[in-house]
Design a protein around this nucleic acid. Structure first.
Length: 586
RNA sequence: GGGCAUGUAGCUCAGUUGGAUAGAGCAUCAGAUUCCGGUUCUGAGGGUCGGGGGUUCGAGUCCCUCCAUGCUCGCCA
């Protein structure tokens, strides 16, 4: 149990003892202090109880302290300012906790008591298109969220809701019939790049040519009703695209189960039918709609969610409703997380509302749209290539790796060091990919994010290379000292003792991982974990700067080696939750 | 016009249910090294938290209003 959870229990008992059972469950308003002179944690509840108790906050604090028994892990609490209760952890407690961490392969973090079934819906590229920069954030953030929830012990279903259905397909098939019919009947008749070109051309036709537009819509209807030729073409295109996606997922080490829009094809009619049976459906201009509560269009009229188009076809709202219903009734999800860009916020609000009114989504189930902002270039505009095209994901990753490689080669040259090519390639790959992931994850996902290779690959600052270097440094200590950390502590049995300020500061931070993971799981903000790991690296470097390790006297040497090892393990674990691998040397 | 988001140091951003003197990093300037990878560490300068009002013991955080930017507003996904 983390110190903060322990304190919360103790405060609850103290409140009951001091003010009676009515105060059971009162939030003690515990927080980490922002200044070490106030201790490690502060409880702010005395001020908030002033009104209900009709007493002065400081008097309340005095009574709480009198009833508070934290002596086995805290120094005597102090009252400060208007009524803050300041708490400082005992060094002996820190030492014991670290010792426990050392012997536990989950770093002292127990699996969650009540595991849920959680769906994380992320990445979701479109068939017949290449993955591009627009898929970057969903893929990276979604993976990190899934990893954190999995580590906690939840049953996580990672779903790739690929765009393999709908109008875009009608467009493409109609166009290929005209210009390249072979592609509809032969596997890999076209290169994926050509397919993208045809897609773009089809889109132009679709926007300009009414007859083409209508033919496309008919093709969709044909596809949705199972017409053989359309189905075959569709299958070929999907297979080809899928292989391309997989290359990216393999590089990024991302596991995903594909369950695209087409998966719900057979359920679409029943979604509409059931909405009708529930009395939620209305026809308007020939389309089947559910009119939304609380939303209006430009004219101030109620806004519809269209679930069946005038031509009888279904659209993405229908699919999303079908998917939601499936996830609740078949997958038995307790929580459904959609990692999709912020531009679709209102769409999700609409779909969730209809699902609630239909009774498919209940209060027992948490459906969450987890939005993220745009990836922008350094000019603050949407990221584009120099030619003005969308940036392909594989090019983006290649460039990050190429730049990382150039950095390494330059560094090796300046240090007069030489390494084999496969070492250089491996380091460049890990550094390049980690940098792209970390740069994205380290920002609050809700705001737009300015993409800069120079910043993400920098060795200084809150970057992947800085964290990786801290880990490499520790690995270097092991090599230098001839120590294999993995079995060192099973043969050496020395109690950790903490004396220096930098040791204490590092130790306290090491014990904070559990709280951070819990916060990330609730708020779904991976940048909190990044911040924690960055601070951990800083504290390690401060400790490293102040305290000699290999040359220290026993038993201090072993105790410090233990701190090194715990730091390395925490970095490795934390980074792995972000989808980032560590390096032994770089 | 409606809805949603964003606005914090020169730049990129944190800021947890309202808490103590608003924090990092980069950049700039000044320091540190018999030592385990200096890809490090220490310090300094730099802020009307978009403007204004309100709520209260206390507001970057909550409410109102205005301004700026972005996204979005029925048969694309």
């Amino acid at each position: 149990m983390s110190a903060i959870a322990l304190l919360a229990e103790k405060f609850d008992r103290a409140l009951i003892a001091a003010f009676g059972a009515d105060f059971a469950g009162t939030d003690p308003l515990l927080a980490a202090t922002n200044n070490p002179k106030f201790g490690d944690y502060q409880a702010n509840l005395a001020m908030s109880l002033a009104k209900p108790l009709k007493q002065k906050p400081r008097d309340i604090a005095t009574q709480i302290i009198a009833a508070l028994d934290v002596s086995d892990f805290c120094e005597p609490p102090e009252i400060a300012g208007p009524g803050f209760i300041n708490l400082r952890l005992k060094t002996s407690y820190l030492e014991a906790q670290l010792q426990h961490m050392l012997t536990d392969d989950r770093l002292g973090i127990p699996p969650i008591r009540d595991p849920q079934t959680i769906i994380v819906d992320f990445s979701s590229p479109n068939i017949a298109k290449e993955m591009h920069v627009g898929h970057l954030r969903s893929t990276i953030i979604g993976d990190a969220i899934a990893r954190v929830l999995e580590f906690q012990g939840h049953n996580v279903l990672r779903l790739n809701h690929v765009g393999d259905w709908g109008t875009q397909f009608g467009m493409l098939i109609t166009y290929l019939r005209e210009v390249y019919p072979d592609a509809l009947t032969k596997a890999d008749a076209l290169d994926i790049g050509d397919l993208v070109t045809f897609y773009k051309e089809a889109k132009v036709r679709f926007d300009d040519d009414e007859a083409f537009k209508e033919a496309s819509r008919q093709a969709v209807v044909g596809l949705q009703s199972g017409e053989a030729e359309a189905r075959q073409a569709w299958q070929l295109l999907c297979d080809q695209s899928r292989r391309e996606f997989q290359k990216i997922y393999d590089r990024l080490d991302i596991q995903l189960e594909e369950r695209g829009e087409s998966f719900y094809n057979d359920a679409l009619a029943s979604v509409v039918h059931d909405l009708d049976a529930l009395g939620l459906l209305q026809e308007d201009d020939g389309a089947q709609c559910v009119f939304l509560d609380g939303y209006t269009n430009k004219d101030g009229d109620p806004l519809p969610l269209i679930v069946q188009k005038t031509n009888g076809g279904y659209n993405y709202a229908t699919t999303d409703l079908a998917a939601l219903r499936h996830r609740v009734t078949r997958d038995r999800a307790n929580r459904i997380i959609y990692v999709v860009d912020v531009g679709q916020s209102s769409h999700f609000e609409h779909v969730f509302q209809v699902a609630r009114r239909a009774g498919w989504l209940t209060d027992a189930i948490e459906a969450q749209h987890v939005p993220f902002g745009l990836v922008q270039g350094e000019d603050g505009k949407k990221l584009k290539t120099r030619a003005g095209d969308t940036v392909r994901l594989r090019d983006l990753l290649d460039e990050a790796i190429d730049r990382a490689k150039a950095d390494i080669e330059q560094r090796l040259a300046s240090e007069d060091r030489s390494e084999p090519a496969d070492f250089i390639n491996h380091v460049a790959t890990v550094v390049g990919l980690s940098s792209v992931k970390y740069a994205d994850l380290s920002q609050n996902r809700t705001s737009n994010y300015i993409f800069s290779y120079d910043k993400m690959l920098a060795m200084q600052g809150n970057t992947a290379p800085y964290l990786l270097y801290a880990y490499v440094r520790i690995a270097g200590i092991g090599r230098k000292g001839g120590i294999d950390f993995n079995d060192f502590f099973s043969t050496v049995n020395t109690v950790i003792t903490l004396t220096e300020q930098t040791e204490l500061s590092l130790a306290k931070h090491l014990l904070g991982l559990e709280d951070v993971i819990e916060t990330v799981a609730i708020e779904l903000l991976p940048n909190r974990l990044c911040q924690y790991l960055f601070e951990l690296s800083q504290k390690f470097n401060q400790f490293y700067d102040q305290c000699s390790i290999l040359k220290a006297e026993e038993t201090q040497r072993t105790a410090r080696l233990q701190l090194c090892y715990l730091t390395a393990q925490t970095l490795r674990q934390g980074l792995s939750l972000l989808g980032i691998n560590v390096l032994q040397r770089m």
